[in-house]
Design a protein around this nucleic acid. Sequence first.
DNA 1: TACCAGGTCCTCG
DNA 2: CGAGGACATGGT
Length: 231
Amino acid sequence: MNKILKVYKILFKEFGPQNWWPTTPKNKSRPEYRRKSNLSEKEKWEIVTGAILTQNTSWKNVESAIINLNKAGFFDNVFSFNLQKIERLVKPSGFYRQKARYLKNFIDFIKKKHKKNLGSLLNLEKEKLRSELLRLKGIGPETADSIILYAARKPSFVVDAYTMRILNRLGIDVSGYNDVKLMFEKKLKKNFKVFSEYHALLVKVGKSYCKKTKPLCPKCPLFRICGYGIS
DNA sequence: TACCAGGTCCTCG
DNA sequence: CGAGGACATGGT
């Protein structure tokens, strides 16, 4: 069995389903990870927003911003919020001026090009959707793939800093974003379930064990197939 | 105190 | 292309 598949099986067995992406249930204030059948337009906005806010930022800080936004009714009508108001609400997520600008750009794009209908963009064919997203300021490859996978639910593998670090430590040669993405997509079943769980599991093991400094190799579920801990 | 966190843009060789 | 800096808050 190839190593990529093996890693998935080990992580899934160890941690179970992660049920990404978290969204805020009705009458609650904080995002939760739970299985969802079909996403509402509101949930899609929450996911897109989270994908932008979490750029190089801990989810904890993003969560504070999401709570602010939700409390203010942002996800019910994103079009009624100006830049200053968004800046104030997303402040805890860091890089808040930049992120507020990216978010506002995205909102204006949906307003003008998709008649205020986010679903109209997300329903585009996967590659078309990806190129549309990448054209926007503030949407790079990871944010685009996160939106395609978790908001549009189309199988586009998400590569992030954890993915790179874990592959490196596993001794798998990695180059650029797209090479890594294609490697995963080639070796996995192309469906939402596998892609979404795999990425979430990599984040999980990256946060808990395969940390940048002071990794917890001996306790890591990947230890026995990873040479990194042996120094 | 310094470093880290679910990246992206811009500038410069 | 790819390296290097800017962007900013909150936790350890």
